[in-house]
Design a protein around this nucleic acid. Sequence first.
DNA 1: ACAACAATCAATTAAGTTCTTGAATGAAAA
DNA 2: TTTTCATTCAAGAACTTAATTGATTGTTGT
Lengths: 223, 223
Amino acid sequence: MSSQNPKRAMFEHLAAVARSLGSAHRLELLELLAQTERSVEELVKLTGLTLANASQHLQQLRRFGLVEARRSGKHVIYRLADPEVVRLLEALSRVTERNVGAVEKLLNSYFRERDRLEPLSRRELLRRMRDGLVTVIDTRPPEEFAAGHVAGAINLPLSELKRRLRELPREQEIVAYCRGPYCVLSYEAVAELRKRGFKAVRLEDGYPEWKAAGLPVEQSANL
Amino acid sequence: MSSQNPKRAMFEHLAAVARSLGSAHRLELLELLAQTERSVEELVKLTGLTLANASQHLQQLRRFGLVEARRSGKHVIYRLADPEVVRLLEALSRVTERNVGAVEKLLNSYFRERDRLEPLSRRELLRRMRDGLVTVIDTRPPEEFAAGHVAGAINLPLSELKRRLRELPREQEIVAYCRGPYCVLSYEAVAELRKRGFKAVRLEDGYPEWKAAGLPVEQSANL
DNA sequence: ACAACAATCAATTAAGTTCTTGAATGAAAA
DNA sequence: TTTTCATTCAAGAACTTAATTGATTGTTGT
């Protein structure tokens, strides 16, 4: 039956793409690339992988269409091939969160204890921003912020938080976001701010999801 | 740094779930389960896997939270754990379609040649149904139809199509759907109908996606 | 209790994946 | 040109996954 073969072939392709997501290191690389494009070298520094290993993982991601690469001088710069990839990662997270008991426990024991108040959804944040009700802080390092951030957010990396508390309003709610739902920077920022008496909550997910949803973003001028 | 570990652990979990999608056989099982719950035995018949092998794949899917099982007499019935799983499969398909060149070619050479007219989106079909503009046919076998189908659709399995052409209107557009975007039954039905002078198009995706989107479905009475 | 049957488990073999190491490219700077 | 540096390639060892086989569990019907 000729009907069966193309279907099988299709499943094989889907499986190959799924397998390329089937490694914690590759998922970490994808998360980093979801922020902004980066060279292999940068990715090596950020992940702690060896150079050859990172390169091979990146090539695998490229082979299956998740990332693209271009050469820029001595460096090879990788970036996500398509915003759909972020959506795929989101869908994977959602299924994983709902269904895997162990993950539930992990989320409860680590993340939830740091954020008993419900995190804010994208939609809700957008509304409060429009009404001028919140101050939004981006807890990622300056380079990532410069490459793109939620429109109207101010960059306040975790490392500078204590020094720059004066910049923040005491009366208004502060919303912190970061790389994604499992990025800990925003959890820690919220914990710290609350300890000091600020009203702080976390955005449910991070910059890549915000951008992929087509919500307003901006870049720093000198990029 | 205590921040790194839970993140790593989370990536490991996500990767494990992704790996459980990383096999054509398991994807096929998931697609079949997206239609309706089924026993191991049925799945074996439908896929051609050996019993032990199918059982092991199903257990793996269960271990990672994609399916659930219950015992019913001598049989063990599996079903999708969550409608989110369908969304994850959709996201995987979308990324695969867009990004993998080989898949594009496959889609072009086999699927597209059978359906030069654009397929209909769910939203569009819903609108035309509300306006009474279309006849919707479900090309899946009667059991699957009985377990759940698009509200208002009539069941017309491919095998009965030629015999039952008289039931179909010549002047109104006919929309065929099936198990999912890569299910060939609806392609073949549309090809056949066009050959015979009917106005026929395919629904872009299938029953599981329709249901997961929360659109109106119905079941046959005696279920 | 026993036979029949669906499904699972356990053990094996084959195949595939990951990481490491060291050599090979390829672009830029000296 | 030669040197330097970022990246990729190639090969091998350690580990993981897939499919097959035959034994075992658990449920129904006699």
